[in-house]
Design a protein around this nucleic acid. Structure first.
Length: 171
DNA sequence: TCAGTGATTAGG
DNA sequence: CTAATCACTGAG
């Protein structure tokens, strides 16, 4: 399998609308409890962009849950939705500009809840730093994705304008 | 189509 | 404290 180098801070410090499509075809890398490494090609992402974006959790202000989105890019934002599913997000941009990319699918697992269940990602990953963590990181693939866009999934509550943003990116 | 599930949040 | 919400999934 072709692999690349771990993405560094600069990659994540950019605007979420640049980072989200560029994560496609890159490798989400995790180590299990025995230290075995597995690599998963990212195939679907969504961008959540700042306090203006009514679909972004930060639109309702800074809370304990959203705190990590206000920190620098490269950290993980992990939260539970519908009482069952952990959502894996990559924080992007500079500090105090709350943005994140939801990892919706990888090659072997479609759907954000299935991804975290398969990779055993839970609350303990919230705040993890992708540039220094020994159990999760993202590697470059040196491939540029040919991708499509659509509206984001599951955000009917955000209103017509924000729902219409083509901020879902997929192969 | 629709129930399950529980952390998070706003509000009294 | 209470009650509503929710970036989803699986069963039917």
């Amino acid at each position: 399998m072709m692999t690349g180098k771990r993405l560094q801070r600069d990659f994540y410090l950019r605007d979420v609308l640049e980072v989200a499509p560029e994560l496609l075809l890159k490798f989400l890398v995790v180590t299990d409890s025995r230290g075995i490494i597995s690599r998963h090609i990212i195939t679907e992402t969504e961008a959540y962009r700042g306090s203006e974006d009514k679909a972004c959790h930060a639109s309702r202000g800074r809370t304990d849950r959203t705190e990590v989105m206000y920190r620098q890019g490269g950290l993980l934002y992990v939260y539970l939705v519908y009482g069952i599913h952990w959502m894996l997000n990559v924080v992007t941009g500079q500090s105090d500009n709350p943005q994140a990319v939801l990892i919706r699918s990888v090659e072997d697992f479609r759907g954000p809840g299935r991804v975290t269940r398969a990779l055993k990602i839970d609350k303990s990953y919230n705040g993890e730093d992708l540039t220094s963590s020994s159990r999760i990181w993202i590697e470059d693939s040196e491939v540029t994705a040919d991708y499509k866009t659509s509206e984001r999934i599951g955000i009917d509550y955000a209103g017509e304008y924000w729902k219409a943003r083509p901020w879902r990116f997929y192969l």
